[in-house]
């Protein structure tokens, strides 16, 4: 790690909830607590094509899950179901005690607690970096503007681009844009962060700056679900590896076992393919 643990506390305001999250450590994921994310028998269809089949999956508070698998295996669909960017067709999804259904209020309540980072960043191009960060707190959390800006600058510091606050997204590099996108999600002070291939659209030299921020976030105790091909990152932060293929979860294992001795033949094949390069 390029920065010490104390740095985090110094850069961070002492808000109760955030402080609580900081106190959760990797080895302190409470095993007895009810899961914060729970998917039961979830299925999802795109027309006749079944994208997800019988997904059973749960995440505990503070747990870091990395989902991997070949392309088209349903990783993105799964993660997008968690904040209802995709609607599941069968089964139940419960996030922090709220079951996802057609109730738009419930959906918005869940989305406020679940941050999402996209492959293509999806920053708002007509707003400055600072405005990208404050629009959620101001419009959704009804925070007043000065307080939202203080919050936004805190998180810009945290992703290490405080000097870019007044620029527009198009003036930033890909890595910087993705860090702004992470900060934008964090400004909503979510309890869970979802990452949908956050480094896949980046030039190679920019991947590590984004991963550094994600590692730091993981170390702070954030509950995270990441779809990524960055196996170094997975090895470093994951509590649980989920391997998917053809819309099913094939295996759920701790990383130590997943990388050395995966249970399924498919996972072994997949690892061989991506690790040999």
């Amino acid at each position: 790690m390029p920065f010490g643990e104390g740095w985090l506390f110094a850069a961070f305001p002492l808000e109760p909830r955030v402080t609580l999250q900081h106190e959760v450590r990797k080895d302190m994921v409470s095993p007895g607590a009810p899961p914060i994310i729970s998917m039961r028998n979830v299925a999802k269809f795109f027309g006749p094509f079944q994208a997800l089949t019988d997904i059973n999956f749960s995440v505990r508070q503070g747990e870091r899950v990395v989902i991997c698998g070949p392309s088209g295996s349903g990783k993105s669909t799964l993660i997008r179901c968690l904040n209802r960017l995709e609607e599941h067709d069968e089964g139940t999804i419960t996030i922090d005690g709220i079951e996802l259904g057609d109730d738009t209020k419930d959906i918005r309540a869940v989305r406020q607690e679940v941050g999402m980072v996209f492959q293509q960043f999806n920053l708002f191009p007509h707003l400055t970096v600072l405005e990208n960060l404050t629009i959620g707190p101001i419009r959704v959390r009804k925070m007043d503007k000065p307080a939202a800006e203080v919050l936004a600058r805190t998180y810009l510091d945290r992703v290490r681009i405080p000097e870019q606050a007044d620029k527009y997204p198009s003036q930033l590099s890909g890595g910087q844009q993705q860090r702004v996108a992470i900060a934008r999600s964090l400004c909503m002070e979510p309890r869970i962060m979802l990452f949908d291939e956050p480094t896949s659209a980046l030039d190679p030299e920019m991947i590590s700056e984004v991963l550094d921020v994600m590692v730091e976030l993981a170390d702070s105790g954030m509950t995270m679900v990441c779809v990524t091909h960055e196996m170094g990152f997975a090895r470093r932060v994951a509590d649980t590896m989920v391997f998917m293929e053809a819309g099913r979860i094939v295996e759920t294992t701790p990383p130590a076992q997943f990388f050395t001795n995966p249970k399924s033949k498919r996972a072994r094949l997949f690892l061989d393919q991506i690790l040999e390069h």
């Binding site: 960017l85 989305r111 996209f118 999806n122 920053l123 419009r139 959704v140 909503m188």
Partner: peptide, 15 residues
């Protein structure tokens, strides 16, 4: 993607 990003921070359709 703009819709998705805005939805993911909890905005209403009107917002």
């Amino acid at each position: 993607g703009q819709w998705e990003a805005a939805k993911s921070i909890g905005m209403t359709t009107g917002q």
